[in-house]
Design a binder for these strands. Structure first.
Lengths: 246, 246
DNA sequence: ATTCGGTACTGGTATATACCAGTACTGGCA
DNA sequence: TGCCAGTACTGGTATATACCAGTACCGAAT
C-alpha cells in the first residue's frame, strides 16, 4: 500500500485545507472586515508548508472575494458588498449621499473628444460627433470600488465639463440642461481588470472584475450618455427588476 | 550576454510578456475559438522560462477570460460570450431552441424539500413550506456553461417533478398549471466557483464566476419560483433594460 | 473487432530557495 | 522638532525540481 494518504484526509490538497481554515475565520467573524489576514510567511510557518503553498491558499481566498490585497501591505478581509440597483442607475451618486454611505468621487480626466464607430452606434450619432468624456474614481467607505468613464453628447450640454464633476452628473444634466434620464440599456460582464485599472483600484493585475456598460436615454428615447464602469467584483452586486414582455 | 533585460522591456514581468504574446494570438484570431493553447511545458521552453512562470502566464490568460482550461487536457480559447437578457429570463430555455443556439439541459437532481428561512423570505411562504427543487446543468454549443437550481412552491404545481425537466420550466408551469411569469427580481454578483460546482462546469476550482439569483412572480405579484444560477463568467454577459422610476 | 496495457502527453500540487520592491516604523542625528 | 537612514516587515517575481493523476492514443494480445 503505497503512499497511504490514510483515512482522515482522503485527498483534499493542503492549500485547500488552509483556505478552508482561514475562510472559516472570516465568515465566522473572528477576522472582522478590513482585518489583516496572516501574511504568506506566517501562514507557511503556521501550517508547515512552503511559502508558495501558503501563497496559493491566500490567492484562492482572494479569488473567492473573501479578501482583497494591497500591494506589499498585506491581505485584508473584504467588506460587505454594495448593492447597485441598475434600475435606479440615475441616482447612484445622488442616493449615496442621502443613504449615509460614504461616497467619494475623484475626477481623473476630462476632455472633449470625437465619437468612434462604437460610441456613435451606442449614442445614435455620426462618427466624429463631439462628445464630453470624463473618467471618475469612486470610493465607498474610503475603499476604491469602481472606475467610471462616461461619454455625453456635447451638443446637448455645452460647458458640462466646467461644472464640478465630483457629483451625480445625471442630476447635473437635469438641473442645467433639462435632460431627464428615463431608460437605460445595461450590460454586465465579468472580465479581467486591466493593469492600469488595477493600479487605480489598488489591486494586483489580472484579477477578475465586473464591467458594466450603460446607455442612458431621455424621455424621448434618445440616448445622450454612454458609460462604462469597472468594479472590483468582490465589493458589489447588481440588482434589477425584470418585467417580462410577452 | 547575461539576462539582458536591455532597453525595450524596462520592467514588465516575464510572465506578463508571455501573456501579451499569447493574448495577441487569441485576439488576432491566429488561435481560433476552442483551439488549444500551447501547454505549460511548451510555453516554458518556447520563452525560456520555468514551467511555473509559464503556468502563471497561462493562468493569467485564463483569469482574463480569454481561455478556459479542462483538467489534464489543456487550455483552450474561449468562445464568444452568450448574452443573457435578464428582462427576458423566462424564455431562456425556450428561446435558445428557436435561435438555433445549441442548448442542452442535463437534470442533475430533483426532489421535494422544505423552505428554510432564506427561501421562505424570498418566496413569501412560511418556513417549512414544501418546495420542489431541481438542479440542472446547461450546455451551450456543447460547453457546460451554467448550473441552475430552482425552488418552486409545490402547492402551486403538484407533480411538477414528474415532467421532463430538460426544458423550459417556465413554459411547463404556464402550460400545465397556468402560472404566468410576469416580473422578476434579479441579483448578479461575481463570486468564486465552489469546488463541486467547478467539477460540474469542468473548471479548476477557485475561479471567479457569476452568480445570478432571481425570484419570479406571477401576474398578481406573488413569487412562485426562486432560482440560483452559477455561470462561467467568461462565457456570458447579462443585459437589462432599466426604466427609471422617479 | 474489442479489450487491455503501455506511453507520452496534460495540468495539479508541493517544496525550497532567492532576490526585488514597496511599506511602516523606529531610533538617532541635526 | 523634523528629517533621514536603517530595519523588519509585506507581497511580487522567478527558478528548478519532483511527483501525482487524469487523458489520449497506439499497438499488441485476445
Amino acid at each position: 500500500m503505497p503512499r497511504t494518504r490514510s483515512q482522515a484526509a482522503p485527498s483534499l490538497p493542503r492549500f485547500r485545507q488552509i483556505v478552508d481554515s482561514i475562510s472559516h475565520d472570516i465568515v465566522s467573524g473572528v477576522l472582522p472586515e478590513h482585518a489583516a489576514l496572516p501574511s504568506e510567511r506566517v501562514v507557511a510557518d503556521l501550517h508547515g508548508v512552503s511559502r508558495m503553498t501558503a501563497r496559493r491558499a491566500l490567492e484562492a481566498i482572494e479569488a473567492e472575494g473573501l479578501a482583497y490585497s494591497e500591494d506589499r501591505k498585506g491581505r485584508f478581509v473584504s467588506p460587505k458588498r454594495v448593492r447597485y440597483d441598475i434600475s435606479n442607475q440615475v441616482s447612484f451618486a445622488a442616493r449615496a449621499g442621502s443613504t449615509g454611505a460614504d461616497l467619494a468621487i475623484l475626477l481623473l480626466r476630462k476632455h472633449t473628444t470625437q465619437a468612434d464607430a462604437k460610441l456613435a452606434a451606442a449614442l445614435a450619432v455620426s462618427v466624429g460627433e463631439t462628445l464630453h468624456e470624463y473618467t471618475r474614481l469612486f470610493s465607498i467607505d474610503s475603499h476604491t470600488t469602481l472606475i467610471e468613464t462616461e461619454f455625453v453628447v456635447a451638443r446637448r450640454c455645452p460647458g458640462l465639463l466646467n461644472y464640478d464633476l465630483r457629483q451625480s452628473t445625471t442630476l447635473l444634466l437635469e438641473k442645467h440642461y433639462g435632460i431627464l434620464a428615463r431608460t437605460g440599456d445595461v450590460v454586465i460582464r465579468m472580465r479581467a481588470i486591466l493593469p492600469d485599472e488595477a493600479a487605480l483600484l489598488g489591486l494586483p493585475p489580472h484579477h477578475a472584475g465586473i464591467e458594466l456598460e450603460q446607455t442612458i436615454r431621455d424621455e424621448a428615447g434618445v440616448p445622450f450618455c454612454f458609460g462604462r464602469q469597472v468594479w472590483r467584483g468582490e465589493l458589489a452586486e447588481f440588482s434589477a427588476q425584470a418585467i417580462v414582455n410577452r
